[in-house]
Amino acid sequence: MQGPVFQDRFTAGRALARLLVRHAHRPDTRVLALPRGGVPVAYEVARALGAPLDVFIVRKLGTPGHEELAMGAIATGGTRVLNPEVIDELGITAVQLDAVTAHETRELQRRELSYRQGRPALDVHGCGVILVDDGLATGSTMRAALAALRLQHPSRITVAVPVAPPDTCEALAPLVDEMVCARTPRPFDAVGLWYRHFDQTSDEEVQDLLARSAHQAAPQPGV
C-alpha cells in the first residue's frame, strides 16, 4: 500500500483546485464545505477559483434508541430529507420524528451561528455549486448533503474531494453534474491514511477560514 499523498488538507485543496480551473472566476460559482474537515480543503479551492465560500452543515436524524441508524437528515437552509423505509419499519411516530428534528435543528443552528459569526448564508439558488469534503469513505454524508442541497435549486452541482474509493466515486457520479475525485486509491481503508497530517479541524479554525475567505471576497475600498 502506498503512503500518504497529501501533506495536509490545505495542500489537498490546492491539488483539488487544479482540477476545477474551468469553474474559476465565474460569477455564479459557489463553494460549499462539509465541516469541519472539508473547510480547509474548500478554503483553498475557493481562493484559487475566486469564489465565495460557505459551510453546508448536515446533521443525521438518528432513530430513537438506535441513534447510529439514520431515519433522515437535516441541512443548511432548513431542508429535511427523510428515509421512509426506516421510519415505516421501526414505526417511528410523527412526534418522535419532530422531537429528533428539533434537537438536531438547534445544534445545526448553533454551529451555523458559531461558524459564520453573523454573516448570512450564501444563496445558491441558480448557482453552480462545488460541494467539498476532505475525502469520502461510504459517501453516506455526502448523499444526505446532495439530497438537501437540491432543494435549494442550484443550477449545477459538482462534488469535489481529494481522495475517495473508486466505487464510492462511481456510485455518486450519477447523482451530480460532475464528480471530481483527485485520487482514488485501491485498497482505500480510511481517508486519514492518505494525509501526512490529519488532525481534527477545530471550530475556531472553521471560523477563521470562513472569515478570511469572506474578507478576501469583499470589495476593497477604492477598487
Rank of each mutant, 00 (worst) to 15 (best):
L82N: 07
P84K: 10
L122N: 00
A211S: 12
A145Y: 00
V132F: 03
A147T: 02
L34I: 15
E170Y: 08
Q207H: 04
V100H: 05
E112I: 04
A42K: 06
T76W: 03
P162Y: 10
R110S: 03
M71T: 13
R9I: 08
A217L: 09
P64A: 13
R212I: 06
P221A: 15
E85Q: 14
T138L: 11
G78V: 04
F198E: 10
R18H: 14
R183D: 06
L209E: 08
H103Y: 14
D98I: 03
L193V: 06
R59L: 11
P187R: 12
G38E: 07
A190N: 06
A218H: 15
A42H: 02
E204Q: 15
R47F: 02
T168C: 05
D123G: 00
D28A: 11
L90W: 06
G77E: 00
T184D: 04
V191T: 01
P165A: 10
Q96F: 12
P84D: 08
H25V: 07
R150T: 03
I130P: 01
Y115M: 02
P4H: 11
D203F: 13
R36T: 13
C127D: 01
I57L: 15
V163N: 12
A99T: 15
G128N: 05
P162M: 14
V161H: 07
S213D: 09
D208H: 14
G126W: 00
L61G: 09
L210Q: 01
Q7W: 07
V21P: 01
A214Y: 05
M1R: 01
G38A: 11
A171Y: 03
G78Q: 08
H66K: 13
S213V: 04
C181V: 00
Q207S: 10
V223D: 12
Y43R: 04
L61P: 08
C181E: 12
L16A: 09
T101L: 12
D28V: 02
E44N: 09
F56C: 00
L149G: 01
H23R: 03
E204D: 15
L82F: 13
C127Y: 00
T141S: 15
Q117K: 09
M142G: 02
V95H: 02
G135C: 10
L49T: 11
